[in-house]
């Protein structure tokens, strides 16, 4: 487990309170009890960290994201987020917990019948944010992702990179503590991929813990962040550096 990490300046950062802790977590899907998607996985991610989770398809990366999102329950082990044991969350507490997490997907998952503004505002509407505050928050996020001029555009009128930036704005508009990104550059060309990664880094610098699941070796190697490598449902490496998993 990481004891702390160096910022780009080279200054050693003191360890923060862990924001995500997985304690001997295993997950077997129904009917596959002998075939674990995850097996005895333990790690902690501190507040403000930027972490890549890498590994080949089917290695269990997305299962990790779904477990942290509390979409699925572990078969065994415990998951703590911001000190809360997820297994003890009551049904009505789960939706509140999810508001503290932003999520970005490979396929953007924007609503095609709503424009950029409406897609981002949607995230605020569904958590019943005060109506008068929504325009300000949405505008702030669209400025952050560089799409303030395109607020009236519909997803089909935008490039993949732009759509992913809208998805990022939507994930961030509720000011989450953690941002989970599941293959955020999977459908993008290199230039757009870097734009998204730069945005994620910017978001991280503002204090949000960022967890990125990716296949993209180049990005991982260049960014030199903490990398958790998963293979066949097990963590085979957890260190700062590049993409080492085959």
């Amino acid at each position: 487990m990481p004891k702390g990490h160096e910022e780009e300046t080279g200054r050693e950062v003191l360890p923060e309170a862990p924001v995500i802790v997985l304690d001997h977590v295993s997950k077997a899907y129904d009917g596959f009890s002998d075939n674990h998607a995850l097996e005895d996985v333990s790690f902690r991610i501190d507040k403000g960290e930027f972490v890549f989770i890498v590994g080949p398809s089917g290695s269990g990366k997305s299962t990790l994201i779904r477990l942290i999102e509390n979409e699925i329950d572990p078969t065994s082990g415990k998951i703590y987020v911001a000190g809360k044991d997820l297994s003890k969350l009551k049904k009505r507490q789960v939706c509140k917990y999810r508001r503290s997490i932003g999520i970005v997907f490979q396929d953007y998952r924007l609503l095609p019948d709503r424009n950029v503004y409406e897609n981002v505002a949607f995230a605020q509407e569904v958590i019943e944010a005060p109506k008068n505050k929504i325009p300000k928050e949405v505008s702030k996020m669209l400025t952050l992702v560089g799409l303030s001029q395109k607020f009236k555009s519909f997803p089909k009128e935008m490039s993949g990179g732009e759509q992913q930036r809208v998805a990022l704005a939507r994930a961030l508009v509720n000011n989450p503590m953690i941002l989970l990104a599941d293959e955020p550059t999977g459908n993008l060309d290199p230039q757009n991929s870097w734009e998204i990664m730069n945005l994620l880094e910017e978001v991280n610098k503002r204090g949000t813990t960022v967890v990125v699941v990716t296949h993209n070796r180049e990005i991982v190697d260049v960014m030199q962040k903490r990398v958790i490598s998963v293979l066949n449902g097990k963590i085979i490496e957890d260190k700062k550096g590049g993409y080492d998993v085959g």
Binding site: E69, K91, R92, C95, Y97, R98, R109, L111, V126, N174
Partner: peptide
């Protein structure tokens, strides 16, 4: 379906 799925992930309350 997609809208509901996103609402669910964002943290919309069940009644919403």
């Amino acid at each position: 379906r997609e809208e509901i799925s996103i609402m669910h992930l964002i943290g919309a309350a069940d009644y919403f």
